[in-house]
Design a protein around this nucleic acid. Structure first.
Length: 202
DNA sequence: TATACGATCACCT
DNA sequence: GGTGATCGTATAC
């Protein structure tokens, strides 16, 4: 299994969002691997994207998005959840892909322990859930995914492009205008680990 | 210094 | 269908 390299992340963000589907997200804690296949992601592209954290320019919070590609951008939301992004494109241009859902593969026992009381099919079916399951928090913000020993991505089995579906991104405020409707969420159609709260398009 | 709110989730009816 | 939890961040005073 080979690790994704810098060139993978430096690419066009929408391309990376699609290419991440089927890749393996690996978290290593105390030498134990916990991993899952990415089945859902969302692209956030530049300051012109009004739904992006970079929509109002560079701040201490979003500065990792402005840095080199291949870094983890981990942010805190709603007072209790963490979300994981991978930074894309050239340094200086703020763009990233939010990892929204995983199909668990390795270390499921550890994920169950961190998500006590949740059934297996709800361990990683959302951006907050997967960070809880894999023990991802602010300590990993800015980590270089091309060299880190605790968080990285690997190649896995190729995905049939025909299985990739797209939809508007989830959870955006109406105030972001047209950014709320562009189909920058992508996912593996039919996969049971795609996040699916309520009825949802796509 | 104060305040409003969010790239969510779980639990309620 | 609706909403409370809970706090870092941005922005307004």
């Amino acid at each position: 299994m080979s690790r994704l390299n810098l060139a993978f992340y430096r690419d066009d963000t929408l391309q990376v969002a699609r290419a991440l589907l089927g890749k393996r997200l690996v978290r290593v804690i105390d030498g134990r691997r916990q991993s899952g296949v990415i089945v859902e992601s969302e692209a956030y592209i530049g300051e012109a994207d009004r739904a992006s954290h970079a929509a109002h320019g560079r701040t201490r919070r979003n500065e990792v998005m402005y840095g080199p590609p291949g870094r983890a951008y981990v942010y805190f939301i709603y007072g209790m959840y963490w979300c994981l992004n991978v930074v894309t494109e050239e340094a200086g241009f703020p763009a990233a892909v939010l990892v929204r859902a995983l199909e668990p593969l390795e270390g499921v026992d550890l994920m169950r322990a961190r998500r006590a009381g949740r059934p297996d099919h709800e361990l990683t079916t959302g951006p907050g859930k997967l960070c809880a399951a894999l023990g991802i928090d602010r300590r990993l913000n800015g980590v270089d995914l091309t060299s880190s020993e605790e968080l990285f991505l690997e190649d896995d089995v190729p995905v049939d492009p025909n299985r990739i579906a797209a939809s508007p991104r989830i959870g955006l405020n109406d105030k972001v205008g047209s950014a709320a409707v562009v189909p920058w969420r992508v996912y593996l159609a039919g996969n049971r680990f795609v996040s699916a709260q309520k009825a949802r398009r796509g």
